[in-house]
């Protein structure tokens, strides 16, 4: 296999992995929310968020995997927005610790 093809496939796999890690994180959040549990902000899920964004950023450097990269970054940003809303609005609507 040519080096160019391998490089392209690596970028594509990075893109797919970024989407999958983002979706897994959101799926975990769904499970917590649907079971009525507190979403563990700042634990493993934050690590997944950074992995999702990092893989997405790598994927956008290749033309063929760019759309996958943006998709992954979008999921990562959504996760970030979700944590921020839950944290800031959470304090606003529930004044008790």
């Amino acid at each position: 296999m040519e080096l160019g093809t391998i490089k392209q496939q690596i970028f594509q796999w990075m893109g797919w992995l970024s989407i999958v890690t983002g979706l897994v994180s959101i799926a975990v959040i769904n499970i917590y929310l649907l079971w009525g549990l507190n979403v563990p902000i700042g634990k493993n899920i934050s690590l997944w968020l950074w992995v999702t964004i990092l893989l997405g950023i790598i994927a956008i450097f290749n033309k063929k995997s760019r759309s996958l990269g943006f998709w992954g970054i979008g999921l990562g940003l959504y996760l970030g927005l979700f944590y921020m809303v839950m944290f800031i609005l959470g304090w606003m609507i529930n004044p008790f610790p």
Binding site: I26, L33, L81, F82, M86
Partner: peptide, 11 residues
């Protein structure tokens, strides 16, 4: 995205 978005709207 449906459930987390609804939660954000609720908050």
């Amino acid at each position: 995205l449906i459930v987390p978005t609804c939660y954000m709207l609720t908050f």
